[in-house]
Nucleic acid binder design. Structure first.
Length: 380
DNA sequence: GGCACCGGGCTCTGCCATAGGT
DNA sequence: ACCTATGGCAGAGCCCGGTGCC
């Protein structure tokens, strides 16, 4: 309560304005009585005018007011806000002026959170993350994830729940780092997704649904911010398209297939269709396609255009389709990278038929070392 | 030492719709 | 009438290195 009051008196406009008593959202869910300043609008004929002194404050903080207005217009009409308290709070945590301005511009509702609430939330997130710097990084990337919910209790419930699934601290750290929205979901929504995963496991004849759910979450950190509808649609689509048995699908989902469960369903379908069309035209059979997708699911992440370019580039470089199907990892690398490597290899007369194409999916460092040796050999 | 296999790391936010509250 | 909290969606890959086998 004391820090909340400090936030209140920190308001720039306070000193110049008369007081009025209103209720305002606090860190807890119960409303508090507070004093705040009132600024008459230039245009009092508007039923809900913007708070002019707030606009001035935001401007001073370097906030893109136009963007803020577009995102959450209601915030600009609020009588009580905590922009200066928030700015100081974030500054103390190591955020730059630009970062703070960008956070408020992109998620204006952040300025409605009290200092008590901010402090509590910060500590909760810090339970998983190691440093303030890491947290500032996440906020900078995704202010919405941190500020969208005012329910700190729910965050704690999520931690308890996710830990109870057997997810390690490392998993939680990865989850909050890559998909911070997971922790702003209501715990019930996360439970729903876990139940959905467990149901899929049981339906496929699996014997350890808890382990199944845990494995998929730790393999695919985005799964909890997707809808169960999408998950079911993708699972069914893969099953019918590839004509998989229950056992095959079960193994696939908790193995390499976990990675593609969260793709947009339409995108998955489009990519599968274009992959099939392309490969059938090149003389592949359905079994080849199934083997490719089972062994290298990430091929479904590649959009139709990119896939076409990659295949063209490899084939033009003298590689035959059979080799690509045997070593689909070559499709992992960017077209630019592969093209450059193909050129370097052509220059020294590298024979893909004799030596295989493994050289194309080495890391940059390993490729460099390999090239050096090859060049030395050719020179001798 | 060279190679194949394999898994992991990075990254993924910003917008819209809507139920429910005030 | 308006705002907040929350669910859901679109978007569209690339790269590295540990390990074990030969």
């Amino acid at each position: 309560m004391a820090s909340g009051f400090k936030a209140f008196i920190g308001l720039h406009r306070l000193a110049q304005q008369p007081f009025k008593c209103i209720t305002v959202q606090s860190a807890t869910t119960s409303p508090l009585l507070r004093f705040y300043s009132v600024t008459p609008s230039k245009d009092d004929t508007n039923a809900y005018p913007e708070n002019e002194s707030l606009l001035e404050n935001l401007d001073l903080l370097g906030v893109d007011v136009k963007m803020a207005r577009q995102r959450q217009p209601g915030v600009l009409r609020r009588g009580v806000t905590n922009e200066q308290g928030l700015a100081r709070f974030l500054q103390n945590k190591g955020a730059s002026r630009q970062t703070i301005a960008s956070i408020i511009s992109r998620y204006p509702r952040a300025i409605t959170r009290s200092l008590d609430h901010l402090e509590q939330r910060w500590q909760l997130w810090k339970n998983i993350l190691q440093t303030d710097k890491e947290l500032v990084g996440i906020l900078e990337r995704s202010p919405e994830s941190f500020f969208r919910s005012s329910n700190n209790g729910n965050f704690e419930k999520n931690i308890t729940y996710l830990s109870s699934l057997g997810l390690s601290n490392k998993d939680l750290h990865r989850l909050i780092g890559t998909a911070p929205r997971t922790f702003s979901n209501r715990v019930e929504l996360n439970k729903q997704m876990v139940r959905c995963l467990e149901d899929i496991c049981v339906q496929l004849g699996g014997t350890d649904p808890e382990e199944f759910a845990k494995v998929i979450i730790s393999k695919n950190h985005y799964i909890l911010i997707r809808s169960t509808k999408r998950l079911k649609a993708n699972t069914n689509y893969v099953r019918t398209t590839l004509k998989l048995t229950d056992a095959e699908l079960l193994a696939y989902l908790q193995g390499p297939g976990a990675k593609i469960l969260d793709i947009s369903n339409e995108y998955l379908k489009n990519n599968m269709t274009s992959l099939q069309g392309r490969l059938l035209a090149l003389g592949c059979c359905e079994e080849d396609i199934k083997k490719l997708v089972m062994g290298y699911p990430m091929v479904l992440y590649i959009g139709a255009t990119t896939l076409g370019t990659k295949l063209d580039c490899l084939i033009k470089g003298g590689i035959i389709l059979k080799q690509i199907l045997e070593k689909p990892k070559v499709l992992d690398y960017g077209t630019k990278n592969v093209t450059a490597r193909l050129e370097e290899l052509r220059a020294i007369g590298y024979d893909f038929q004799a030596n295989g194409i493994g050289i194309l999916d080495l890391s940059r460092k390993r490729f460099g070392a390999k090239m050096e040796k090859l060049v030395t050999c050719t020179d001798e």
